[in-house]
Amino acid sequence: MEMAELSALLTPGGLRLLDSLGDIASTGDVAAAVTRLRRDGHSPDLVSAAVGQARLRARARAKFGGHAERMLFTRAGLEQSTRLSLAAHHAGRFRAAGLQRVADLGCGIGGDALALAALGLRVDAVDSDEVTSAIAAYNLAVFGDAVTVRCTRAEDADLTDVDAVWLDPARRTAGHGATVRTRPEDWSPSLDWVLDLLTRRPGGVKLGPGLDRALIPDHVEAQWVSADGSTVELVLWSGAVARPGVRRAALVTRGERAWELTAAADAEDAPVRDLGAFVHEPEGAVIRSRLIGDVARSLEAGMLDRRIAYLTGDAASTSPFVSTFRVRETLPVSTAALSKALRARGIGTLEIKKRGVDVDPAALRTKLTLRGDDAATLLLTRLGDRRVAILADRVEAAG
């Protein structure tokens, strides 16, 4: 979105027009809405802004729920923004530490600032992009003087009166299009600058979960987060916001429910054992935090292979830190033999998962002739130097 489009939208008439559009979810919906609005005499800038925002609001519901209907977005800002349920967890850390005023440095469209302010904290939010900071100001206006939004670089923000900092470095090029992943030194602000700030100020920084672990300083708490089955972020916490004795954490959320595993360091892996009655697949946050060994011991399980993040044991589990599968049998790995075995067992619906083998599940599915009313999961993996296909059934997860 350009400033001319935002200016056209931020009028009583422009906002009423946006609210009247309802869902615009497909390219066909976009074309129809643009044609209708231009025919009704609306300006090109207003039409572009209103239709674009209506489409972004539809996408934003996954992160912001009903709040999305009262917010504005940029495409890149929505992509990088924290889902509101996780932003509430972030904000809770600051409040639990007794901090009252937080600088949100690189606030984007204001998702984390919204959660901080909702818990009663004062927020000084900044973003270096003019359009993005204007949108953040609109989204946060409901909090009045409790939130200030300024258009400036994080590096130039005045931190004199703040108690802590929150950062989400921009991992995109200039503009408001799709996010472009770049090297940490190219982020805005750079990772080196952020980590230096966190040695001097309590706070947190949200990063991608795949960050090179060699870049994580020893003095911070590193918390990986999985939400509804996807590993979505790594947060580094420092100072009063970091928990004493915790250096590794895996936070797993499903909807509004959350579970966490913490440790002072990476956990030692459990020993390898033979295939048991169950296979457990750890959540991505558990794998990234290298706490698989702790989970394995809690389940009385072992590693299926020392190089692969599957656990196995003889006890069922509904642990939130793993997905559990009851083993039926092992099947031939060749496509033809596998297809024949699945048909013989009447399996018409098949979930395919793989670890440690060079197989494209989507491509394999097209080669299998599935037929029948039964459903199952196929786990393709390795046992030592041998590829195996494990036919299994999902065990219902906790929560």
Results as ranks from 00 to 15, higher is better:
R70W: 05
G144W: 04
A301S: 11
D374Y: 00
G229T: 11
R16C: 05
G108H: 09
P332L: 11
A170L: 08
E155A: 14
D29S: 07
H89L: 14
L167I: 15
L167K: 07
D145F: 03
R172M: 06
A68K: 02
S334N: 13
D228I: 04
T381C: 05
D23R: 15
A32P: 03
R171A: 10
L391I: 00
R150I: 03
S319F: 06
A341Y: 09
D129S: 07
A50I: 01
F94A: 03
P209C: 11
R273S: 13
R326V: 10
L299W: 09
S43R: 12
V232K: 12
A8D: 08
I24M: 06
I24H: 03
R247I: 02
V162P: 09
L72A: 04
L56Y: 02
E281T: 09
V232L: 15
L140N: 00
P189C: 08
F143D: 08
L46W: 00
R201E: 05
D374R: 12
S339H: 07
T182A: 15
L99A: 01
V235G: 10
A214W: 09
R201D: 03
A137K: 00
V147F: 01
A157Q: 03
R343G: 05
G284E: 07
R75V: 01
V232C: 10
L6V: 12
T369D: 14
G208A: 15
A157V: 06
S317W: 04
S81Q: 06
R382H: 12
A337E: 15
L197K: 05
T369Q: 13
L350M: 08
R153S: 13
I347A: 00
G203P: 06
A96N: 12
K340I: 10
R55Y: 03
H67I: 11
G108Y: 09
D40W: 11
G41E: 05
T173G: 15
V235T: 15
G302D: 06
V123P: 02
A363D: 11
A267D: 13
V102W: 02
R288C: 09
S317K: 05
A103P: 09
F143T: 08
A341T: 11
